[in-house]
Design a binder for these strands. Structure first.
Lengths: 334, 334
DNA sequence: TTGAAAGCGCTAACAA
DNA sequence: TTGTTAGCGCTTTCAA
């Protein structure tokens, strides 16, 4: 591997000069610049970023902490983050945490040791401790698709309250009166907000908000299916279910089907996220769309500004979700 | 941030001594080791890996080139690779190439500049040139889920021929005689192998292999849907379709549904990959399962051995796919 | 416009 | 057992 010394020697200049042509700064005569450039090309020279990282304290690498890449929602988030990061000249090191705070902790110290320029968190809402620690160490961090209201951190997320409201409202407009919610655990802020939005719509419509129709579940399809099953097996089952993500919604559809119920005739289902799954399930899922591309782009823009110190203050950007009506919801048939 | 010098000073030892306790090598008295360790802990010292990378020429980072994280199959691959990499002490930088050789090229030079210990390729089968170049530069590389028969590279993949055979054979056993295939473009080795396996099964059963039933398509759901649509609209449509991946199979199911055909009564469909999608679609998809966890684990083990020079020769590990029968296939009803 | 030299934080050979 | 020292490949200040 050619080093800066090889180039310098070959070109009869100092390494300082070579460095300047690499970084296109300092004053250099066009003549030497060209000579050096040519030699770099000829020797197929590629400057070592680990060496430059040591002096510049910049690795052009961002860490992404995510619960689980195998979950389509997070995979799509990761994809959009990587796209924008790449455009801005960053690489992305991706870490699957399974929302396990031990993993989160160990990944964050590793990333720090590797000198990443910033860390984007899509994980572990509950774990303020880790965030605080990072903040305290002057790590540049940003949070995507999660809310940490108590911390001054760059954040991009969707208005979960509105999302919940839109979902419930859609069902109400279709005539439904018994609308259940299946949510992930409440430690996750966004779940709570979605349920709050649901409640708001319910009450605004003059309906009674009933605790018994709010069910907490884990986040996999099976969990949604089991939880929905319990609901459907009751004496007065709901005629509609709002599930706080597409995975759970799919579980609900499966539970209905298992019971010989037809969706949407016997049960309407609304999801959240608008992942690829929503278009694949039959019937296609009515869901609340998160602008995933935009979320990814914006969070990278924010963190990149902070890395480049082009920013004075933290921001919290709230994007608006949209209702996407497909086949899983329909008018209540009395 | 504390450096090795701070620790050395605080402990009244040389930086060499501190380095030894960090790396647990060299001979050190228990007493000083403990003193130094305590101080490291007290000052919350975390050795800079970028500095050590400069001397050791090891970053404990692996690059993963993948077509598209938003594609569930590759997302699951990425997840399994990351899991094993993490276990072995590596981080993973993930690059989405969209199978675009320009991107592949630019990512590989970037990764090289960043001094990654190795690169795992799940992308761009067609592009031997890039591979050769990397090999020539002594980059440690490995290939997952793709075959590069002409190159001496560590490879882990599934027996695509067998997979195709199993798929077709299953349909034949169900009584089908007119079995179409939808495949990705043939530049991808694995597609070709899957079709070869299909053909083998057809001919072994004494049936006629017909070119007209082999259709090349792009790789998205829509493409599969469109291609299947053409097949179904023919005068003598096939009674079964083997699609070379789950996405295409789902497209086929959708095309059938759109035409009022019932799966599997009027059309049987087999997919390939056994992604999460296979369990979500209705009816659940009969498909050829790739052992994704195992693929990921094995490729990381191989590349890690190569990085640690614990290996003399390249390997090509072929895992066996399995037929998973679900609801999308059924006996031919005459 | 160019170059000398110090330094980034660590490792490793060698000496003490 | 511990320390000295020369790098690793680059950036950057300052002087020429």
């Amino acid at each position: 591997m050619a080093t800066i010394y090889d180039i310098a020697k070959e070109a009869n200049v100092s390494i300082a000069t070579v460095s300047k042509v690499i970084n296109q700064n300092g004053r250099i005569s066009d003549k030497t610049r060209k000579r050096v450039s040519d030699i770099m090309k000829r020797l197929n020279y590629q400057p070592s970023m680990v060496a430059s990282a040591l002096t510049k304290k910049r690795t052009y690498t961002i860490g992404l902490l995510i619960p689980d890449l195998a979950n389509p929602f997070f995979a799509e988030i990761a994809r959009s983050v990587e796209d924008r990061a790449h455009e801005l000249g960053f690489n992305l090191v991706i870490c699957n945490t399974d929302n396990d705070s031990v993993k989160e902790e160990s990944y964050t110290v590793l990333l720090k040791q590797k000198g990443v320029d910033g860390i984007i968190l899509a994980t572990g809402a509950h774990n303020n401790a880790i965030l605080k620690k990072l903040l305290h160490q002057k790590q540049v961090i940003a949070v995507i698709a999660r809310d940490m209201p108590s911390l001054a951190v760059d954040t991009v997320l969707v208005d979960d309250f509105l999302g919940g409201y839109l979902a419930a409202n859609h069902l109400i407009e279709l005539g439904h009166r018994s609308i259940a919610v299946i949510t992930e655990k409440f430690e996750v802020m966004s779940s709570r907000e979605r349920v709050r939005g649901y409640r708001q719509a319910i009450e605004e419509a003059g309906l009674l908000f009933e605790e018994k129709w709010v069910r907490v579940s884990s986040f996999q399809v099976q969990d949604g299916k089991a939880t929905a099953g319990l609901l459907l097996d009751e004496d007065n089952p709901p005629t509609a279910i709002f599930a706080c993500n597409d995975l759970l919604a799919i579980g609900a559809i499966q539970a209905a089907r298992e019971r010989g119920l037809s969706v949407p005739r016997d049960l309407s289902v609304v999801g959240f996220d608008n992942t690829i799954l929503a278009t694949i399930i039959d019937p296609p899922l009515t869901t609340i769309a998160q602008p995933i591309q935009e979320l990814g782009k914006q969070i990278v823009d924010l963190i990149s500004q902070e890395i480049n110190e082009k920013k004075t203050s933290k921001q919290r950007l709230v994007l608006l979700p949209e209702l996407v009506v497909r086949g899983s919801t329909g008018k209540l048939i009395p």
